[in-house]
Design a binder for these strands. Structure first.
Length: 570
RNA sequence: CGGGGUGUAGCGCAGCCCGGUAGCGCGCCUGGUUUGGGACCAGGAUGUCGGAGGUUCGAAUCCUCUCACCCCGACCA
């Protein structure tokens, strides 16, 4: 491709609403243009990247035995009513009516449609297993679309669904997809990690997320350096401290802590470690008021708490409710001396604490030297309700946890028979008996991968694409293209050679000043560049510059084609 | 949905407090000089000042409504 025949739309300054580096760079490089919140056009250069990602996914899915199809983006409401998701889904589901006042949705996911397809086609165990997938535009009306393409409302997704005659076969395919995803993200050239994930209400034995590792990621991942344990922090288990509760050494004492409503402030005032404090979080489950206890330096994991039957669902108590049930305004509440009718739910860590600090249920006062049994009743419930932190023991008992951040780009899970039962997708076994099909579901955020790849691969000059998804693999930058016959000849010859070798090459024939060409070619992330100028050409040399390399290499013109091909192989 | 903020040229912004008929940088167009890291000189084009209404002799500026976008609201007892 020649630049003059293509469409480059680079910007020196990024629009001010871009927050993270990948969003800024995608805008500056002219990969995408925003049309509305979370809705973007993919410009020609960006589309080339998207297509490359898509093709790698397609190749690997096909290789793994899945079969591509394409389902409609617009789905009649009846299918969603059949599974109950029409009611379950909130405003995130974009609903509309057609001219006959029939309800439709724009598909945020396609379990219903695929299950409908399969139940009409599949009768016998002999037709199973079957894995169908599509690469298609989805729409989710996110509360807060942001970060450009990372959390968009309209986005491209690969979603695959597998159907099986037995759970064992579903597990087999699940492992197959785990391997396939690993191959896909490896081929994409990304640094990633598969982590155990929350299965949500769906259940089943397994769910894994694939995360591209990046500091700007929205998810926190807990992993163990000494084993292969890795889990989303939402899920990672906070194990009970190995040491038993210490013997108490202090008497309970009421201390004045005026204006100190946060554990941090109280600890600072009393000159105690934050880990000696306990924060009480007042919540409501229906009409029941409860107190959750978390160590001062820990944070509540709302997902874990929500899963407890006596808390599902819960909300934070209002200030008025706190006053009503504890007779004290928020900031100084604690578990000591409270009514028997208010259940105390302690985190495992808190249950092991001794001589701790908590609110005195009296404005302006806290209690120190508090101990279970002696000063207050033992907690009514002890559960893991906090987020794990760096240094916690790994749940598999093999060392300690580290925390890093990631961008979720893939998710696989075992749906089992949730949809097949709701939608009566059944097959006949060898004995002629009907069974609901076992289902698996496997998604990859195609659009998001582009953002994630940039988030992971950039420098102050712009994007550095991994070769597999670079819009062009090599750029030719001829200096004085319009003026110098020798430069033009050398550039045209190299361009033709690289093209005939099947390499994706961009020739910058704009006759721009070198600085402009270099800046653009670097910004858009082309991994290899050959600079051809009259000066070095006189000595029969051209220059090769790797996007990640600090210095350029002089290479004889006669060898440059072979040289580039060699670098591409590396 | 609450709290805050911003909408002025393709992009980044000033002007608004204190009303007087719109400006800067980049980009764009023309001509010339340049040509190995975002050139220089000269000339030029581009705005319903987000929209509607109001106040006023006069509104980008003041008032009301509205729309769009951004940020915060997820550790707080």
């Amino acid at each position: 491709m020649r630049t003059t025949q293509f469409f480059l739309a680079t910007l020196k300054e990024a629009p001010s609403d871009a927050e993270i580096v990948s969003h800024k760079l995608m805008l500056r490089a002219g990969l995408i243009k925003r049309l509305a919140g979370g809705i973007y056009s993919w410009m020609p250069l960006g589309l080339r990247i998207l297509r490359k990602v898509e093709n790698i996914i397609r190749e690997e899915m096909d290789r793994a035995g899945a079969i591509e199809l394409l389902m409609p983006a617009v789905i009649p409401a009846e299918l969603w009513q059949e599974t109950g998701r029409w009611e379950m889904y909130g405003p995130e589901l974009l609903r509309f009516k057609d001219r006959h006042q029939r309800d439709f949705v724009i598909g945020p996911t396609h379990e219903e449609v695929i299950t409908d397809v399969v139940r009409r086609e599949i009768r016998s165990y002999r037709q199973l297993p079957l894995h169908l997938y599509q690469i298609q535009t989805k729409f989710r009306d996110e509360i807060r679309p942001r970060f450009g393409v990372m959390r968009g409302r309209e986005f491209l997704m690969k979603d695959g669904y597998s159907f099986h005659a037995s759970y064992a076969d579903l597990q087999r395919e699940y492992r197959n997809m785990h391997d396939t995803y690993t191959r896909i993200f490896t081929r994409l050239g990304l640094s990633f990690r598969a982590v155990a994930a929350d299965t949500g209400s769906i259940g089943g034995t397994g769910s894994h997320e694939f995360h591209v590792l990046a500091d700007s990621g929205e998810d926190a991942i807990a992993f163990c350096a000494d084993s292969d344990y890795a889990a989303n922090v939402e899920l990672a288990e906070g194990v009970a401290p190995a040491n038993p509760r210490n013997v108490h050494t202090e008497h309970m004492k009421k201390v004045a802590t005026p204006g100190k409503t946060r554990c941090e402030d109280v600890a600072a005032l009393l000159e105690l470690p934050l880990a000696k404090t306990v924060k009480a979080i007042a919540v409501m489950h229906e009409e029941q008021f409860l107190l959750l206890l978390i160590r001062g330096d820990h944070t509540l994991n709302e997902i874990k708490a929500s899963k407890l039957p006596f808390l599902n669902p819960f909300r934070f108590a209002s200030d008025e409710e706190v006053e009503r049930f504890l007779g004290c305004r928020p900031g100084y509440i604690g578990p000591v001396g409270i009514d028997q009718g208010i259940p105390i739910v302690a985190d495992r860590t808190v249950a092991q604490m001794s001589d701790f600090v908590c609110g005195a249920n009296e404005a302006g006062y806290h209690l120190t030297g508090v101990n279970w049994s002696r000063d207050l009743r033992e907690p009514d419930h002890v559960f893991d309700i906090r987020n794990v932190v760096e240094g916690d023991s790994s749940p598999d008992g093999k060392g300690s946890l580290s925390i890093c951040r990631g961008i979720e780009v893939g998710h696989i899970f075992q749906l089992r028979t949730k949809y097949s039962e709701a939608m009566k997708a059944s097959f006949l076994d060898e004995a002629g008996q009907p069974h609901a099909m076992e289902m698996g579901c496997y998604g990859i955020g195609v659009t998001r991968i582009v953002g994630a790849a940039i988030e992971q691969n950039h420098d102050e000059r712009g994007i550095i694409f991994p070769r597999a998804i670079a819009p062009f693999e090599v750029a030719i930058a001829p200096i004085g293209y319009g003026k110098s016959q020798s430069v033009r000849d050398a550039a045209n010859t190299l361009y033709a050679e690289l093209r005939s070798a099947g390499i994706d090459v961009l020739m910058d024939d704009r006759d721009e000043r070198p600085g402009v060409m270099f800046a653009d070619l670097e910004l858009v992330g082309i991994p290899h560049r050959v600079t051809i100028g009259e000066r070095s050409l006189k000595e029969g040399m051209v220059e090769y510059q790797g996007r990640r390399e600090a210095t350029a290499a002089k290479v004889p013109l006669t060898e440059i084609c072979a040289y580039v091909r060699e670098r591409l192989r590396a």
